[in-house]
Design a protein around this nucleic acid. Structure first.
Length: 448
RNA sequence: GGUCCGGUAGUUCAAUUUGGUUAGAGCACCGCCCUGUCACGGCGGAAGUUGCGGGUUCGAGUCCCGUCCGGACCGCCA
């Protein structure tokens, strides 16, 4: 019999620990060979590690000439001593420390050189080549840094809401029917029936409000729309929350303003290295966000462009940019809420505004020219929900399990969804959200 | 679904406008050199069915037709 416990599994030293280690102390590190600079006397070998790149120095005769056997993407373990040094290369972290190597153990070797040049400061690839070679291209420090930002944002989304009375839920992704109007839905074979991939956790969030009051979920959602743009993919990460006992849909917006402020400040703190590498500046998030109605947004965009958008039921991409520019310039906020979309443009569960007939208590959040959130107050009253379904031409009987929540009683509630890849892309000024997605799925791409 | 644009070495690009010798260059790769590099540097080498098929022509990467693949934008949405 053998017993296994986590005390037997050491955690690799981080960049900060290497930096803090005293000069001359012994250390063993492992990693992949990111690049080798051979000189006559030896070589600089940069190892890619979990949280940075460390420079290792080998003499020509170190460990029997081990440097001659090294190649890019070999996985190695190196033992040596800590020395202080000054690195000019921002991708190297720690930047004040290098390891003078005494012994090298090669753990694995690649079968062939990488198909793209991972040693350069930037990975200069067509997006299509980049995506085709994702298992390789994401090894580049700049490429992998983007997803680290996304990881930090998601982690703080969960942390922030958990600390404010929200419960984490996991709703099914294989569903009996679709939730959202508009968006097409993927069909999947489910034994002898047809099922659907979830477009949103919407129904389940609302049901869960009845038992947890406040819930959130981060996970994939699926949209079967054949769009072909830099801001759409067919599977993306939705950061969802739903909160009960709201006094107004503005409570949801207030929660989001604090949430985003925390997420962005936390990412800025935890990912300073990645942000420097990416040359990105995170926005200062104001205490409060400007908020305009759709009609006001049309006026702002119209004044800027000279066109007349009034009466349009939604904001077009051009308008989103114009409104964001206006908000940034006039109101000092790169975030701007747009409210009161028409009933016809919002899903059937959206609460209508009793004061503005034909319009809803719903909002989008625009950031740097892109819609990153949709949210609003939901209908909690059973009769009102059934009536609205009927006015949308939907059969309430088809939504029996959903309506059971309303029939049994729901508090006033509302919520929202943030597109994680979109938020990350705009924060980093990345043009295409495929680059903030590890393995994107779009109409043309099902691999890797 | 609509409108534009593109496809040349592993990769990023040039040569296409005006058809003309053996399709060039950077990086990666291979060899040699370089005592601290950091997008290291120097010298040399190898690397191509110009997406695919057909046509025009003495001659096609270049012009024409078809086809395949991809990109951008719009609609729609996060």
């Amino acid at each position: 019999m053998e017993r296994l416990g986590s005390q037997d599994l050491p955690t690799p030293a981080g960049a900060a620990e290497l930096s803090a280690a005293p000069e001359g102390s012994r250390v063993t590190v492992h990693g992949a060979v990111q690049r080798i600079r051979r000189l006559s006397w030896g070589a600089f070998v940069v190892l890619r590690r979990h949280d940075g790149l460390v420079q290792c120095v080998l003499q020509a005769d170190t460990d029997g000439g081990a440097m001659q056997r090294l190649q890019e993407e070999s996985c190695v373990e190196m033992a040596g001593t800590i020395h202080r040094a000054s690195m000019k290369d921002p991708s190297i972290m720690p930047r004040d420390t290098e390891i003078h190597v005494e012994s090298v153990r090669i753990l694995s070797e690649p079968a062939s050189p990488p198909p793209v040049d991972l040693t350069k400061k930037i990975l200069d690839l067509h997006i299509d080549t980049n995506l085709d070679l994702r298992p390789v291209s994401l090894r580049h420090p700049v490429e992998r840094a983007r997803l680290r930002i996304a990881s930090a944002l998601e982690a703080d989304f969960r942390r922030y809401l958990s600390s404010r009375g929200f419960t984490s839920i996991r709703s099914p992704k294989i569903c009996f029917a679709g939730a959202e109007g508009g968006a097409n839905i993927f069909r999947v074979q489910y034994f002898d029936r047809t099922a659907f991939l979830a477009q949103s956790p919407q129904f389940y969030k609302q049901m869960a409000v009845a038992f947890y009051e406040r819930v959130f979920e981060t996970g994939p959602v699926f949209r079967a729309e054949p769009h072909q743009t830099s801001r759409h993919v067919n599977e993306y990460t939705s950061l969802d929350f739903e909160m009960g006992y709201i006094s107004s849909f503005r409570d949801v917006m207030l929660m989001e303003a604090g949430l985003l402020r925390s997420m962005i400040e936390t990412a800025g703190r935890e990912c300073a290295y990645e942000l420097e590498l990416l040359g990105a500046t995170l926005p200062s998030v104001p205490d409060s966000f400007p908020c305009v109605t759709l009609a006001e947004a049309h006026e702002i965009a119209g004044a800027a462009s000279g066109r007349d958008y009034s009466g349009e039921p939604d904001l077009g991409p051009e308008e989103e940019k114009l409104v964001c520019e206006h908000s940034s310039r006039e109101w000092g906020s790169e975030f701007v809420f747009v409210t009161h979309y028409p009933t016809s443009k919002r899903p059937f569960y959206t609460m209508d505004d009793p004061l503005t007939p034909g319009f809803t208590l719903s909002f989008d959040l625009l950031f740097r020219g892109l819609e990153i959130t949709t949210g609003g107050q939901r209908i909690h009253d059973y009769d009102m929900q059934v009536a609205k379904m009927q006015s949308f031409g939907l059969d309430p009987a088809a939504f029996e399990s959903y309506l059971a929540a309303h029939r049994t009683g729901l508090p006033p509630h509302g919520g929202l969804a943030i597109g994680l890849e979109r938020l990350t892309a705009r924060l980093l000024d990345v043009d295409n959200i495929r680059l903030t997605t590890m393995f994107p799925r779009d109409a043309k791409r099902l691999t890797p």
